[in-house]
Nucleic acid binder design. Structure first.
Length: 587
RNA sequence: GGGCGUGUAGCACAGCUGGAUAAUGCACCGGCCUCCUAAGCCGGAGAUCGCGGGUUCGAAUCCUGCCACGCCCGCCA
C-alpha cells in the first residue's frame, strides 16, 4: 500500500534509528502485509537482529513502542518478529474521497508501442491464437488505464509462403475442386458460409493437400516458389495480388476480434521494409559488423555466440540468393518501431523465444535497445495440441456463439421478464467477457488447456462475477437518483467513527487504496493476470460492503456510503475496461 | 543430445527479487432471499508446495542433481 507507505515510512525509520538500526533498509523491507488480517504494511525485523544484537521479537516490540502516532495509522502491532501497521480506515476514506489514491505523477507515463496478435491472415481466428490477442489487447488497455499513450499494432505478414499458397489457390482452383479435395472434412459451419476467412481457408487447406499429395505437386511447388521469390524481392504486382487474397481473410479475423473488444490502431505490412529499402540497408549494415560470417553459397549470418547466445549461435539474416529472411525484416521493423516510442512490447508465443533473442541481440549490436517481450505458452485442447492441418481446432467464432448461447440460457432463467433484445445484448456482453477473463486470468507462461466448461463458467472467479458487482453499484445509483435526483457523492461527508465501520466497508476502502499498486505492477511486469486477480478482490470487497452497508434504508440516503459506493463503481468500471470486460449497468 | 519454460488440495489457479497459520475459485458438506439484483453472502472440510541434496536464524520462493510435461535448436514464417 504505497499510499500508506509514503506517509509512514519516515516514522518507521525514525523508530528504528532510536534503536540504532540501519534505517536505509526500511525502504526495501517495509512491504505490503502478506497476512492481510494483520495489517496493511509489515516490516520483518529478522534482518536487523544481528546488527542490533536483539531478538526479532524484541525489536518488533521496541519499534512498536517507539513509533510516533499518526493520523494515517490506526494500529501498530508486534507479532512474531513482525511490525504490522494498519491504515486508519477513516484516513483511507479521506484520501480516497479526496482523490489522492492515484500514484503520483512522478511515475512517468510514456509512449508505448505494443505489437500483438499479428497472426498470418490465412484462415479464421482460432482459440489457439486467442491468448496472444487477448493478452495483448489487455496489456494495451491496462497501459491506457495507467495513463500511458499506447499504439496497438498488428504486423501483417503479407509475403512469404503462407500468403503465396493462399493467393495461388484462389487463382488456380475452383470452389468445386476445393470441396472435393476436402470432402473428408467437416464442411464450413453454415453460419460462417459468407465470412471470407472461413471461405478462403478452404482454398488454403485444399492447396496444402495438393502440394503434398497431388500428382502435380512439383509444378505447384515451383509456381508458389516463384511467387514467394517475387514477394521477397519486393515485386509490387505480386504483393498486390497477395493483398487481394489475404485482405478479406484479415477483415474476417478482425471482425471476430472486434466482437471480443480487441482493436488495433495501426497495421504495418511486412513488405513495407523490403519495398522501401530498409531491409537492404540493414543487411548492408549487418555485413559490416565484426561478428558477421559468410557461408559457402554467399549466405550471411551473425555469430551471436560471441554475444552470449547458447545453442545454435549462427543467426542467418541473408540467403544465398541475396534475399532477406523473416527475422531480418523483423529487425528492420523493430528499428522503425523504436523511432516512435519510449517502450516497445511484443506479445509472442513461446516458440518465438529463440528468434526474439536473436532479434534482441542484433538490435543491441546495432546500438538499439531490446524490446520487452511477453511470452505465453500455447493453448491446447484436452485431446492434445491444436492443429489446423488435423482439423482439431476450435474457431473463435464458434466459441463466441457458444458463450452467447450459454449466457442466454442462464439469463432466461434468472430474468424471464427481459425482452429479446435485452437478452441478446446482455448475453453477448457476458459471453465475450467470460471468454476473455478465462484466458487473461491465468499467468501467460503457464500451459493452458481449453475446456468448454471453464470458458463458459459464470460463477465466482469469472467475468460475470465482476460484472454483477458493478451492476449492483449501478442499481444503487439508480435508486439513489430516484429518491433524490440531485444526490451527489461528496468528499466532505460525516464519516462513521472508526470503531463503527463495518467489516465490509473497511475491506472495500483497503482494496480501493491498493488499486494503483496492483495496476502499476501488472503494467510494469506485463502480467495482466495480476490485475484480473485484483478485480476479483475488488468485486468481493464490494459485495461485502453491499452486505454490510445499506446505502438506501427507509427511503433515506446515507451519503457517506453512497460516496464510497460511487468510488467503487468507478474503480470497477475502469478496471473492467482495462480487462476488456463489458461494464453493463444491468444484467 | 543442447537451450528455455512449467510442475502448488480431486480439478484449475495465486504467491516465486527468501520471512508469519501457503491465498482464491470449481467440485464436496452445512447455513442465508417479507430487506439496495442470491451470477451473491456466511461457515466447514480438503496441500508430504514434482522428488532428493545444499545455502540460511528462516526455503513453495535461492543453488544443485534427478523426474514429468511444453516449446525451440531451418539459408521456414
Amino acid at each position: 500500500m504505497k499510499l500508506l507507505k509514503n506517509e509512514v515510512q519516515h516514522l518507521v525509520m525514525e523508530a528504528l534509528e532510536t534503536l540504532g538500526g540501519d534505517s536505509s533498509l526500511v525502504e526495501k523491507m517495509l512491504q505490503a502485509s502478506r497476512e492481510i488480517t494483520q495489517g496493511d504494511l509489515t516490516l520483518p525485523c529478522f534482518p536487523f537482529a544481528k546488527a542490533l544484537g536483539m531478538a526479532p521479537v524484541a525489536i518488533a516490540e521496541n519499534l512498536k513502542d517507539a513509533m510516533k502516532p499518526h493520523d494515517a495509522v490506526s494500529d501498530v502491532t508486534a507479532v512474531n518478529g513482525y511490525l504490522n501497521i494498519r491504515a486508519s480506515p477513516s484516513w483511507l476514506a479521506k484520501q480516497l474521497l479526496a482523490g489522492r489514491s492515484r500514484h503520483a505523477a512522478d511515475e512517468i507515463r510514456t509512449d508505448v508501442l505494443i505489437e500483438h496478435t499479428s497472426a498470418n491472415p490465412n484462415g479464421p481466428f482460432h482459440v489457439g491464437r486467442a491468448r496472444n490477442a487477448i493478452l495483448g489487447d489487455t496489456l494495451v488497455r491496462l497501459h491506457r488505464l495507467w495513463g500511458n499513450r499506447v499504439t496497438a499494432e498488428y504486423y501483417v505478414d503479407d509475403m512469404g509462403k503462407q500468403v503465396a499458397v493462399l493467393a495461388w489457390a484462389l487463382e488456380n482452383m475452383s470452389k468445386q475442386e476445393v470441396e472435393e479435395l476436402l470432402s473428408d472434412r467437416d464442411p464450413v459451419n453454415s453460419q460462417w458460409m459468407n465470412k471470407a476467412d472461413h471461405q478462403r481457408v478452404r482454398f488454403y487447406q485444399a492447396a496444402q493437400r495438393r502440394r503434398q499429395e497431388g500428382s502435380d505437386a512439383e509444378e505447384i511447388e515451383k509456381a508458389i516458389g516463384s511467387l514467394v521469390h517475387a514477394s521477397e524481392h519486393g515485386d509490387e504486382s505480386v504483393l498486390e495480388a497477395f493483398e487481394r487474397a489475404y485482405q478479406p481473410v484479415l477483415d474476417g479475423m478482425l471482425e471476430t476480434l472486434g466482437r471480443l473488444g480487441v482493436h488495433f490502431d495501426r497495421f504495418t505490412k511486412e513488405s513495407t521494409f523490403v519495398v522501401n529499402g530498409d531491409v537492404a540497408d540493414l543487411m548492408e549494415e549487418l555485413s559490416g559488423l565484426g561478428i558477421n560470417g559468410v557461408a559457402e553459397n554467399g549466405a550471411q549470418y551473425l555469430d551471436l555466440g560471441q554475444r552470449g547466445l547458447k545453442g545454435k549461435t549462427e543467426f542467418f539474416y541473408r540467403r544465398g540468393d541475396g534475399s532477406s529472411l523473416y527475422a531480418t525484416r523483423d529487425i528492420a521493423y523493430h528499428r522503425w518501431k523504436w523511432r516512435q516510442c519510449d517502450r516497445l512490447v511484443n506479445v509472442l508465443g513461446e516458440d518465438h523465444k529463440l528468434q526474439a533473442q536473436q532479434v534482441g541481440l542484433t538490435l543491441v549490436e546495432l546500438g538499439e535497445r531490446k524490446p520487452e517481450v511477453m511470452f505465453y505458452s500455447f493453448i491446447k485442447l484436452p485431446e492434445g495440441k491444436m492443429s489446423t492441418r488435423r482439423g482439431n481446432v476450435v474457431f473463435m467464432d464458434d466459441l463466441l456463439e457458444e458463450a452467447h448461447a450459454h449466457a442466454k440460457e442462464v439469463l432466461k432463467e434468472r430474468r424471464p421478464e427481459l425482452s429479446a433484445s435485452e437478452v441478446a445484448n446482455i448475453a453477448e456482453a457476458v459471453g465475450t467477457s467470460a471468454v476473455r477473463f478465462n484466458i487473461v486470468n491465468v499467468s501467460p507462461e503457464k500451459g493452458f488447456t481449453f475446456r468448454w466448461e471453464d470458458a463458459l463458467s459464470f460463477e465466482a472467479g469469472s467475468a460475470p462475477f465482476i460484472m454483477y458487482s458493478h451492476t449492483r453499484a449501478c442499481s444503487i445509483r439508480r435508486r439513489v437518483q430516484e429518491i433524490d435526483p440531485h444526490a451527489e457523492p461528496s468528499s466532505s461527508v460525516d464519516m462513521l467513527d472508526e470503531d463503527q465501520m463495518p467489516e465490509g466497508l473497511v475491506a472495500l476502502l483497503r482494496t480501493l487504496a491498493v488499486h494503483d499498486d496492483r495496476l502499476s505492477k501488472a503494467v510494469r511486469e506485463h502480467r495482466p493476470n495480476l490485475f484480473a486477480e485484483y478485480m476479483l478482490h475488488l468485486s468481493t470487497a464490494y459485495n461485502m460492503f453491499y452486505r454490510d452497508c445499506y446505502i438506501v434504508q427507509n427511503g433515506q440516503i446515507n451519503t457517506f456510503f453512497y460516496t464510497v459506493s460511487e468510488l467503487a463503481r468507478a474503480a470497477l468500471k475502469g478496471g473492467m475496461e482495462g480487462l476488456g470486460i463489458v461494464a453493463l449497468e444491468s444484467m
